[in-house]
C-alpha cells in the first residue's frame, strides 16, 4: 500500500495542502455537475458534516461521549422553525435566537451533566436528551408533537436578491457557513484553549495538577459544541422544511456519533467524511432494502475491528508512516 502511495504522490508534494485545495474545488464545482437529487444529498452531507464536526469537539478532542447532542440540534431547529412559521424572515437575525437558546440549554445542562464522567456521563446525557425529546413529543401546541411535527418551513431570506428556493443558491449558503464553521472550529482547536481540551482528554489528573480547571474547560467545550450543533440544526430546518421530535431523539445522537467514529474522531475532517459515507450509503442501500441500518451496523463493526481510527484517522496514520519512511 505504501509503495503504491509512493508512486502516486511525488515526495515533495505537500499532501494536506493539496487535499484541501482539491476538496474545496470539488465542493465548488459539484453543484454544476450533480442532479437536483445529488445536490440535495450533498447539501445534507454538509449540514450533517457540520453537526458531526461539532460532536467531534466533544468526542474526539475533549474525550466526552455525549448522547444528547441532538438536543441542541433539535432545539435550535424548532426555535427557528417556530419563528419562521410566525412570520420572522431574516435568516441572519434568526440565527441569534436559534443559537442562543442552544447555548443557554448547554450552559444549564452542562452544570448538571459535567459532574459525572465516563459511562455515567454517557447515561446522564442520554437521560436529559430523552427528556427533551419527550417534551417536544408532548408539547403539541408548540412543536406539533409527533403527529404533525412542524411543517411548512420555507427557505431562508438572506437579504440579497437571490432566491434560496434555488437548490444551488441554498447549497452555496450552506457551503459558506460550513467552511466558516470549519475554520472557526479549527482555530479553536489550535488555540491554547484547544490544547487544554486535548490535555484534559489525555490526562485530566495531570491537567489539574498543572493548575487547569478541567471542569471549566469541559464546560466551555460542551457549550461551543452545542453552538455549532445549533447552526447545523437551523440549516436542517430550512433544508428539510419540516421538523419532528425525532430530531431530538437519542437515535439522532447515535447516528451522528456513528459518523464521527466511522470518519475518525479527533480529526475534524473525519466526521464530515463519515457523514458523507453514511448518508450516501443510506440513500443507496435504502433504494434496495429497508434493512439499511443492518449494513450501517456492519460497517461500524468493520470499522471498530479493522480501522479504529476511522477512515480519515487510518489514512492519516498511513500518510505519516509514508512521510516517516521517506525521511
Amino acid at each position: 500500500m505504501i509503495s503504491i502511495l509512493n508512486k502516486l504522490i511525488p515526495a515533495e508534494t505537500n499532501l494536506p495542502w493539496l487535499a484541501k485545495v482539491t476538496m474545496l474545488l470539488i465542493l465548488v464545482l459539484l453543484p454544476f455537475i450533480l442532479s437536483s437529487y445529488g445536490l440535495s444529498l450533498l447539501t445534507k452531507v454538509l449540514i450533517f458534516g457540520l453537526f458531526a464536526m461539532s460532536l467531534d469537539i466533544l468526542v474526539g478532542f475533549t474525550g466526552l461521549v455525549s448522547f444528547n447532542h441532538a438536543s441542541f440540534f433539535g432545539v435550535a431547529a424548532y426555535t427557528v422553525g417556530i419563528l419562521v412559521n410566525r412570520g420572522f424572515e431574516n435568516f441572519w437575525l434568526l440565527l441569534i435566537p436559534g443559537i442562543a437558546i442552544a447555548l443557554l440549554l448547554a450552559g444549564l445542562l452542562g452544570l448538571l451533566i459535567l459532574r459525572s464522567s465516563g459511562a455515567y456521563f454517557l447515561m446522564i446525557t442520554l437521560a436529559f436528551g430523552q427528556m427533551l425529546f419527550a417534551l417536544a413529543w408532548k408539547w403539541r401546541s408548540l412543536t406539533g408533537g409527533d403527529d404533525d411535527g412542524l411543517p411548512g418551513i420555507g427557505r431562508p431570506e438572506i437579504g440579497l436578491p437571490i432566491s434560496m428556493w434555488n437548490e444551488q443558491n441554498f447549497y452555496f449558503l450552506v457551503l459558506i457557513l460550513f467552511i466558516g464553521s470549519f475554520l472557526l472550529i479549527k482555530k479553536v482547536i489550535k488555540s491554547p484553549f484547544g490544547k487544554s481540551i486535548v490535555g484534559t482528554r489525555e490526562n485530566e489528573l495531570r491537567m489539574q495538577s498543572l493548575g487547569y480547571n478541567t471542569w471549566l474547560i469541559k464546560y466551555i467545550s460542551y457549550i461551543i459544541a452545542a453552538g455549532f450543533a445549533a447552526l447545523a440544526g437551523i440549516l436542517y430546518t430550512y433544508f428539510n422544511g419540516f421538523i419532528s421530535p425525532q430530531e431530538l431523539d437519542w437515535s439522532m445522537s447515535g447516528y451522528i456519533l456513528l459518523m464521527v467514529i466511522i470518519g475518525g474522531a479527533g480529526t475534524l475532517v473525519g466526521p464530515v467524511v463519515g457523514a458523507a459515507v453514511i448518508i450516501i450509503l443510506q440513500n443507496l442501500i435504502s433504494t434496495y432494502t429497508e434493512l439499511w441500518p443492518l449494513f450501517m451496523g456492519l460497517i461500524f463493526i468493520l470499522c471498530v475491528l479493522f480501522a479504529r481510527d476511522g477512515i480519515v484517522g487510518s489514512l492519516l496514520k498511513l500518510y505519516q508512516k509514508k512521510v516517516g519512511e521517506m525521511k
Binding site: K195, S196, V198, G199, E202, N203, R206, L210
Partner: peptide
C-alpha cells in the same frame, strides 16, 4: 508516570508552561 502519552514532548511541556 502521569503524562500526556499521545502528545509530543513539545506539547507536554507547552501545556505545563501555558498553565503558569
Amino acid at each position: 508516570n502521569t503524562l500526556f502519552n499521545n502528545l509530543s514532548i513539545l506539547d507536554n511541556v507547552e501545556l505545563a508552561l501555558h498553565s503558569t
